[in-house]
Amino acid sequence: MTATLAKENAPIASAHSSASVENILLILDGEPPSKAAIPVACKLAETYAATLHVTYVGERRLEAREIACNLGFSTEQRHGAVFDDVSGDALGRVSKMTAQLSRPLIVMSTQTGRPAADKDRFASITESVVATRPERMVLLTPDPSPQPWVLSRILLAHDGTPTSTPATCPAAELAQLSGAEVIALHVAARGHERPREPGSLQAPRYLDQPQHEWPAWAEEFMNRVLASGASPTAIQFQLAVTSGRPGSEIAELARERLVNLVVMAWHGHWDHQTCATRVVIQASGCPVLLVYSAEN
């Protein structure tokens, strides 16, 4: 089922964090799992026409030149990139860069820093950076057999709450910039109460006559997803609905449909071991763009 963004529902500007990215902040510790983020960061910098900033957070002290030459960047990838100051503690530097840069997007591997003893946790630097709740960040789990990263299919995961809608604009924007298609996925959750947030729309509880209910519901869902988020042009959204546990359903669909990037709102929940966001990052097999949105 597809829903087309209606022009009248496509405000150009939005007060939320939907403006273009101007700086990509790539965080590396110099180890191979961390370096998996390089192609993604470079591609995103190219897509957004943003400046790539590389912040080294490894334990060995490296000069900027060493970072540029020894961490696996190609000559092309180095072109236009800024290799940042390496003094001070790692997290402090990341925070400082995030604050200083205009419209930053953090990109990093889940395995940046000291590996965690608990397999459900990410490496130390990743955990620390996530804990600061950056407005937008891309996390990816290193692939043992990495492929060149292209952006042709985006999965926008949406739980039907208005506070998830800020993820719509970044997904649409990337789709427009890269020519990717967007699948909007809603998971009809089991084991969850209906959200109390006003304006939430979940998979229908009553499906009186599917021949009428599904088209009406799909239109309403997409209207809500699109109306509150800014989107620059008429992007084709394909709507998909599955049921089950949100994290694993999102990850499964991402793998099935060979998705290159999952985009989802993130409300800052992180500690719980069954946190859906963690599951998506660990199991979807592609980078995940988290758009922070405080819960209502």
Binding site: A188, A189, R190, G191, H192, E193, R194, Q202, A203, P204, R205, Y206, L207, P210, V241, S243, G244
Partner: peptide, 15 residues
């Protein structure tokens, strides 16, 4: 076993 749920059972199990 499916409670609480937010969707109709045919959405959860499939038609």
């Amino acid at each position: 076993d499916y409670e609480p749920r937010t969707a109709a059972m045919d959405v959860i199990l499939g038609h």
